[in-house]
Design a binder for these strands. Structure first.
Length: 316
RNA sequence: GCAAAGCAAUCGGUUG
């Protein structure tokens, strides 16, 4: 059962929803993990109706399947459906993750009144709750309360530390953000990428470069962050070198190159880069339109918009 | 107990 369930998840993560479903159908036995994996497969592919069916029509559905469904509604802005789902969970019970998801929904979409109400109803806190609280407070300008929450937190992990670093950076306290990074007991790729971004946002290109070189490994986010950092420092050539030598680039990389060139008054290079993109998505089009518009080439921007329509792309 | 599922932190364009 474990092996089949792991395969199911793997197929779903790679985008093969049908294969995941086929495995699910073939399994002689299942457990709660199997069902929640299948529900997650559906929600991550946007097939919420199927996820709902699985939750409703089986005794095997559990707090995880329901929380997953809840989260899917919340992320799609269906707050009423999400709330209904949460209410229906009263029978099987809610755990900390369910409450955290509920808190996050109102942090993302709701009013502070609802958030406050949930805050008071959360029965107990775990490290995710602490971290979410820190983030919400910091975004609200309550840097002091964020720090107090951090100091008072019973549990902290690398995500909590990284969130605290971001909190200082967002509130324009770069030195303290740096200091948090230096004091972190453990770092991962994500926190390294965050540090690199924080350095760059504060104009410390050399610190950003140092971070990039010191990191134990890079991913596409590291690459993209470093590209943006070089462009922000006016070093288009260095940005281009990173781009050209990177083993993995994605659509964000292309956008970063285009807007970087435009920022540096190199619209010609921006346009040329755009034409090299193998598969132009909405992001690519939006970026090239904005690049031309910001450079004062409004006619070209409109022309790109029209080309986008002709290419069958839908504006977002 | 271990391994497979849901909740919190990082990169680009649009809006602020």
């Amino acid at each position: 059962v474990v092996t089949y369930t792991a395969m199911l998840s793997a197929y779903a993560k790679k985008g093969h929803l049908e294969d995941a479903r086929r495995i699910f159908e073939k399994m002689p036995q299942t457990n709660g993990f199997t069902w929640s994996s299948m529900v997650t497969a559906y929600t991550t592919h946007g097939v919420i109706d199927q996820a709902k069916l699985l939750c409703e029509n089986t005794p095997a559905s559990n707090v995880v399947t329901w929380t997953t469904l809840f989260q899917a509604y919340a992320h799609n802005g269906h707050l009423e459906l999400a709330k209904l789902t949460f209410d229906r969970m009263a029978g099987i019970g809610r755990d900390i993750a369910s409450w955290n998801a509920m808190f996050q929904m109102y942090a993302d979409h709701g009013h502070s009144g609802m958030l406050q109400e949930i805050f008071q109803r959360i029965p107990c806190w775990n490290v995710v709750t602490w971290t979410a609280m820190i983030v919400v407070n910091a975004q609200d300008g309550g840097l002091d309360s964020a720090q107090r929450l951090f100091d008072g937190s019973v549990e902290r992990n690398v995500i909590t530390w990284t969130a605290m670093m971001v909190a200082y950076s967002q509130n324009l306290r770069p030195e303290e953000a740096y200091s948090v990074f230096e004091k972190m007991p453990h770092r991962n790729l994500y926190s390294w990428n965050t540090a690199l971004t924080v350095y760059a946002q504060n104009g410390d290109l050399s610190l950003a470069k140092d971070a990039f070189d010191s990191m134990p490994e890079h991913d596409v986010v590291s690459t993209n962050a470093m590209i943006a950092a070089f462009f922000a420092g006016g070093e288009s050539l260095a940005a281009q070198e990173i781009f050209d030598s990177s083993p993995a680039i994605n659509s964000v990389s292309w956008s970063a190159m285009i807007s970087g060139y435009a920022q540096n008054a190199q619209l010609e290079l921006a346009n040329r880069t755009f034409h090299r993109i193998p598969r132009k998505d909405v992001l690519a089009w939006s970026t090239i339109i904005a690049a031309n518009a910001h450079s004062g080439h409004c006619a070209a921007a409109i022309a790109f918009f029209q080309s986008m329509m002709l290419a069958g792309e839908t504006p977002d």
